[in-house]
């Protein structure tokens, strides 16, 4: 199928992108285009203006910044998964990103695009939650920073205003003592997650000192499994304790029912996959 016509502007800076967005009531930002272009082709969106940020240097690349790594929003999934910085300091992100769609899509699609699109079945917002990431956003009034926990508002909805651009994502490093795992459940390899779980666990002396667990596709937005996290904190790093804690995984969620799964099945998947993700993050299996 064929997109409807639109005006097109290519910008070289985030500020120019913001300026361009302000010229239209109905503009869309084009990064890698792997979500946007299929939507345009199906004419599910017919924007008046496309602002192409794929050439903005300040939005591209991965750098170390003290106790964090900073990833430009326009960095491709492929560059994320193959980055030594990411593999060393955010292996959870490397692992989850490697499961996004397929190799061709990962060559074009971007980290920031996936975050800003905020699809509840996407793989990366959960990782941002586990990492307590911070989003750097450019807008008419300059830049602002928003914690991941405050960024995702609703289904396909974030705190980004119509005239704002996500510039970069700052991921505090998960240092020594942390283990992570991303557990994803799909019907076929290239499809979206039915449910997925991102887990990070810090062990101390055979018990779990700290745990962070984020759920994919268990609500209109990604969310942390708070009940599981608190049940794990201080628990023994044992299969039994993890399984017991994981029984709380569906608490506070509101999963949808669709072709692939009814809500009660999603809840069960959340419990099972949380157990597996945490166990692997804790180095148990």
């Amino acid at each position: 199928m064929i997109p409807a016509g639109f005006d097109y502007v290519r910008v070289n800076s985030a500020a120019d992108a913001v300026a361009a967005l302000q010229t239209s009531e109905d503009a869309k930002i084009l990064g890698g285009g792997q979500s946007l272009i299929p939507i345009l082709r199906l004419r599910l969106a017919t924007p008046e203006l496309i602002v192409d940020v794929s050439g903005v240097a300040e939005m591209n690349g991965i750098r170390e910044d003290g106790d964090a790594i900073v990833i430009g929003a326009g960095t491709t999934h492929h560059d994320v998964t193959t980055s030594d910085l990411v593999r060393t300091h955010a292996p959870l992100l490397a692992q989850a990103t490697a499961t996004v769609a397929d190799p061709q899509v990962r060559h074009r699609g971007t980290f920031g695009g996936a975050i800003a699109h905020a699809d509840p079945a996407g793989d990366l917002p959960g990782v941002a939650l586990v990492h307590n990431a911070t989003m750097t956003i450019a807008g008419p009034a300059g830049t602002r920073e928003v914690a991941a926990a405050d960024f995702f508002l609703d289904y396909l909805t974030t705190t980004l205003a119509e005239d704002e651009v996500l510039v970069s994502i700052r991921l505090p490093k998960l240092g020594a003592g942390w283990g992570t795992h991303y557990e994803k459940f799909t019907r076929v390899a290239q499809s979206w997650s039915i449910v997925a779980v991102a887990a990070a666990v810090r062990r101390e002396n055979g018990s779990i000192a700290e745990a962070r667990v984020a759920l994919t596709n268990m609500a209109p937005t990604h969310l942390r499994a708070a009940a599981v996290e608190s049940a794990l904190t201080g628990a023994a790093a044992s299969a039994e304790a993890i399984k017991a804690a994981s029984q709380a995984a569906a608490e506070g969620t509101s999963p949808t029912s669709d072709l692939n799964a009814q809500a009660d099945y999603r809840a069960e998947l959340a419990r099972v996959l949380t157990g597996r993700a945490v166990a692997k993050a804790a180095g148990l299996s």
């Binding site: 792997q34 272009i37 299929p38 199906l42 061709q104 060559h107």
Partner: peptide, 26 residues
């Protein structure tokens, strides 16, 4: 129409991509 099938895969700047999910201007 949805970038699932991969029939249109070409190499762009040395990397495989789906040419149905990229604009010519890009």
């Amino acid at each position: 129409d949805t970038s699932n099938c991969g029939a249109c895969t070409v190499s762009f700047n040395g990397q495989s991509i789906k040419s149905c999910s990229m604009l010519a201007v890009q």
